[in-house]
Amino acid sequence: MSNDVIIDIQDVSKHFGRVRAVDGVTLQVQRGEVVVVIGPSGSGKSTLLRCINHLETPTSGRIVVDNIPLDKTENINKVRAEVGIVFQLFNLFPHLTALDNICLAQQVVRKRSRMEAEARAHSLLAKVGIPEKANSYPTQLSGGQQQRVAIARALAMDPKIMLFDEPTSALDPEMIKEVLDVMLDLAREGMTMVVVSHEMGFVRAAADRIVFMDAGRVVEDTTPEGLFTAPKHERTKLFLSKILH
């Protein structure tokens, strides 16, 4: 194993009752790599992603993130502080302003002073392109703006890895680009990213690898060129023909 592996997923399964949401997945992500996960609805993409920061406890298998095995509770909290996750529905805290959304975990988890946290929050809001929205509440923001605040909130913890679960699929088309641009910037800066998304523009521009999942399993794990020009499996071809029209 190369020691630049930052996420090491070994034979991980997650069952919900009889549903095998994730079924024996083995996957390694290198530091700085951008991996895009695609696959039909219900194929286990979200569940796999959520296993990485232990929002779901795997039924079996082993996950090591940045050399920290995910087993003991302290380890889980350590890993969570190093792994940012961005959800499809943003999940901003509605009772807090954009600024406070970004400051809260910095102060409570990272124990930063209010001044430090605010300074970091302001610089991140500028980075995601909405410095003027610091004092707005989530309901006063558009979907695209909310998602950018959510990205800033995750980045404020200085994560080594960012997970994205369909970050643009709840957005109107005109807002998708503003969110993807922020993600592209992150990718260029060398952030390790695992992204569930069917935005082929992003895949072409940023993905180092693309993973196709079906029925809880990794069916194909290849480069974007490899996938578009020579998909190995019938199921992959069928799925690609659907999403590429």
């Binding site: 909290n77 969570r80 792994v83 940012g84 529905l89 975990a105 409570v108 990272r110 909130r153």
Partner: peptide, 27 residues
């Protein structure tokens, strides 16, 4: 309170107690 709120708080590294105190209970 929607499940996503607890998940977002926990994914930022907050403990269950901190998530309750700062995110769930105020709402």
């Amino acid at each position: 309170i929607e499940r996503g709120q607890m998940e977002a708080a926990r994914s930022l590294g907050m403990s269950y107690f901190q998530a309750m105190r700062y995110v769930i209970l105020p709402q």
